[in-house]
């Protein structure tokens, strides 16, 4: 579980996050949604520790990030898996080497053991015949799978994904969403996903946090988002006619 308490982040005079509090529960896919510039990426980077929060606190399973010394923070990072928007695979390494990298860096396991674990992760994300390919030789969807495999090889407690299905075709995007949700439940991970994708919101949003101008405007589940009257949320989520119709049908059926 990750608890965020009144998180504030400023860059010089500009306050980007204006006091956000929420809880991301274990074994659930937690989604952060909002328009571009709403503060989603800054929020994610603060939680990850890539940006130092100006004020407020982030608590990882009862341990406050503020109270952690550098050594504890470094250990915490080994419990974190991250899937970047552009996958962030290391260009100079093969797919297999990319996935093996965290274990090579942080464990004393021998080469065979690391390779076994990598192959387990590769099978889990359904990557076929890609072990010895370079990142430049595989498709966008495969890159995302490699990034997920690399993120889960250390059995992380927390998984962060920054727009995991951006740039993917709708079918692959759904496959990636489902894969993340399955992994979250299977390994009981606390997963936080930054997304713009409304399909993801509807499909895997077990908890949704809506940000606008650095403030949390709304939070709830993918069922509750259909019923909400919050103007900011409805403007953002139901901006397309298709989603408006889906909402109408859902409300009719539930009545």
């Amino acid at each position: 579980m990750i608890q965020i308490n009144n998180l504030i982040k400023s860059f010089e005079e500009t306050q980007v996050l204006k006091g956000i509090s929420t809880i991301f529960e274990k074994g659930k896919t937690n989604l952060i949604i909002g328009q571009s510039g709403s503060g989603k990426t800054v929020f994610l980077k603060c939680v990850l520790g890539l940006f130092e929060a100006t004020d407020g606190d982030i608590v990882f399973d009862n341990t406050s990030l503020k109270s952690m010394d550098l050594k504890t923070r470094a250990l915490l990072r080994q419990d974190i898996g991250m899937v970047f928007q552009g996958s962030a695979l290391f260009d100079s390494m093969t797919v297999e080497e990319n996935i093996m990298f965290p274990m090579k860096m942080f464990t004393d396991a021998d080469e065979d053991e690391i390779r076994d674990r990598a192959n387990t992760a590769i099978n889990r994300v359904n990557l076929i015949d890609a072990n010895h390919k370079m990142p430049s030789e595989i498709s966008g969807g495969m890159k995302k799978r490699v990034a997920i495999a690399r993120a889960i090889i250390m059995n992380p407690k927390y998984l962060f994904c920054d727009e995991p299905n951006s740039g993917l075709d709708p079918r692959t995007a759904i496959l990636i969403d489902n894969l993340i949700q399955e992994i979250t439940q299977e390994y009981a991970i606390t997963t936080v996903i930054n997304t713009h994708d409304m399909n993801s919101v509807m499909e895997i949003g077990e908890k949704i946090v809506f940000l606008e101008n650095g403030l949390k405007q709304w939070e709830g589940t993918n069922r509750e988002i259909f019923k909400t009257d919050n103007e900011a949320v409805t403007k953002f989520v139901y901006s397309s006619e298709m989603f408006k119709k889906i909402r109408e049908i859902y409300i009719k059926e539930s009545n």
Partner: peptide
């Protein structure tokens, strides 16, 4: 620079490297 632009340096940092 390319590693920075493609978030590879961020990926290393998140891992605790």
């Amino acid at each position: 620079g390319t590693m920075r632009v493609t978030e590879q340096i961020d990926a290393l940092e998140v891992m605790g490297v």
